[in-house]
Write a protein that binds this DNA or RNA. Structure first.
Lengths: 253, 253
DNA sequence: CGACACTTTGAAGACGATCAACGCCGGTGG
DNA sequence: CCACCGGCGTTGATCGTCTTCAAAGTGTCG
């Protein structure tokens, strides 16, 4: 079986941290692996919420379209991230976004009730889920703040810097993992603005040629995207620590 | 004792719904009532997170200041709302915002550990908390979307409409519950822009004179602030239903 | 080679921020 | 009782930024 290894990759999720192997095994048995070819919508805005999803590989664009047909990307869910936990815990019965894979992807799908029942049955799982939702809420708050206070250039710089953290890219040179249209939509700006902004970032020590990005001076960028990011960084560092296994830095210090 | 009634008002919170009177009683014993005179900071950005707060009366401005001293109001927490649950569940040890009462207020303060322990001990509480955080995350997401896609006029119209829902104001005539400076900061715009925008809203059926607001045609406003609000309204209606006691509309339908 | 998706570039216009001045009101002190 | 002040809000003028519409460039794939 080619997919035999997939559930194992789910075991490493922070969501299951602190649980016994047996419990994890039993829980993961409740989910089904599912292939999602690029572009084929996994669920649509307004449809009933039936499953909780864990992205095993690939990435999904989560977006909404307003009355005029303009689309705004709410989030991009990559491997290791989850979808629909908010809708399920909020007892919201209709999907609040569309989900489309931006590349060929694989998910694990658990019935919606599985999530609530697991949270009810395992305290540790409930706490992990609480932590996850608290992080999401905070990231969304920070994003709202950024949208309200930052210029396009700052938003882009912040996004690129974040990419390095999330994907563990080398700031000295990496390729954009998504199309520029998708990134622009994610940042809530027009493609034209995004394109022009990339050029302007040269003045701030970021060079972009095609999909290739080089961040010359990370310090300078962090200062540029201002206090908010770096301050809330305390918590993001904490998240990263947890995801890497809690004590990675206890060794080094 | 003047304050004897306060803990009782906390008992009605959705957070405690589904718990026995005894359990509620025992839990509320873990909190202390505290007076917060207007303007006196309850906690500051960067300080250690020591307590979980329930606002009993009054309202708090939660805000951050960036390097240049510019302040952005992240949220306004009014009676019945809670503060710091996200920071605690995220194991974030430093406050991410400043909290200042915008009017004389009263809170109940519970030790931070109380929240985690209660979530661990009572499954129903954990689920209620999950629901709360899921809602917060969603509201924050919607807000980020609004900031990215809406004009100032739409943001203001949306805010005023929301006020009616949250405070149960009569759209036909009500007074702004906060200063215009605070509202402008909450909406991420300058006071001047907010002021000018209020005038423009006459064209859309909203009259504002001083602090008095009259929304002539609610339908029209809902259409104006576009699909996003009304669509995500599914869930907000649901929230409202839950807060009012679950089956208010089951009777009427 | 041509079709098509994606991106870049140009020019015009709308919108919000900023700076500055003024009006309004409640409080304080002479 | 009036003069002064400070907080708050309004209004005007200007400027920079982002969107919009239009056109052209780049790449891939049949």
């Amino acid at each position: 079986m080619l997919y035999a290894a997939f559930p194992d990759s789910a075991k490493g999720l922070p969501l299951f941290s602190g649980m016994t192997e047996q419990d994890k095994q039993a829980l993961l048995a409740g989910g089904k692996v599912r292939n999602c070819p690029r572009g084929q919508m996994l669920f649509a805005h307004g449809e009933p919420v039936t499953h909780f999803f864990v992205v095993i590989s690939g990435a999904f664009q989560l977006f909404r379209a307003n009355a005029e047909g303009h689309e705004k990307t709410i989030a991009i869910a990559k491997a290791g991230q989850t979808m629909c936990e908010g809708e399920i815990m909020d007892s919201c019965h209709a999907h609040r976004v569309n989900a489309v894979p931006v590349e060929d992807s694989v998910v694990m799908a658990f019935p919606a009730a599985w999530l609530k029942e697991t949270a009810k049955k395992y305290n540790i799982f409930a706490l992990n889920l609480l932590s996850l939702l608290a992080q999401q809420a905070h990231l969304a708050e920070v994003e709202a703040e950024h949208q309200a206070t930052m210029s396009a250039a700052q938003l882009v710089a912040c996004f690129l810097q974040r990419l390095c953290v999330i994907y563990d890219f080398d700031p000295k040179g990496f390729d954009l993992p998504y199309s520029k249209s998708l990134i622009a939509s994610r940042l809530g700006m027009e493609l034209e603005t995004f394109s022009r902004t990339l050029a302007k970032l040269k003045d701030h020590g970021i060079t972009v040629d095609g999909t290739r990005v080089i961040i010359n001076d990370l310090q300078r960028i962090e200062a540029y995207v201002c206090g908010v990011c770096s301050v809330s960084g305390e918590c993001q560092t904490h998240q990263a620590m947890e995801k890497m296994g809690f004590d990675e830095d206890r060794k080094s210090s």
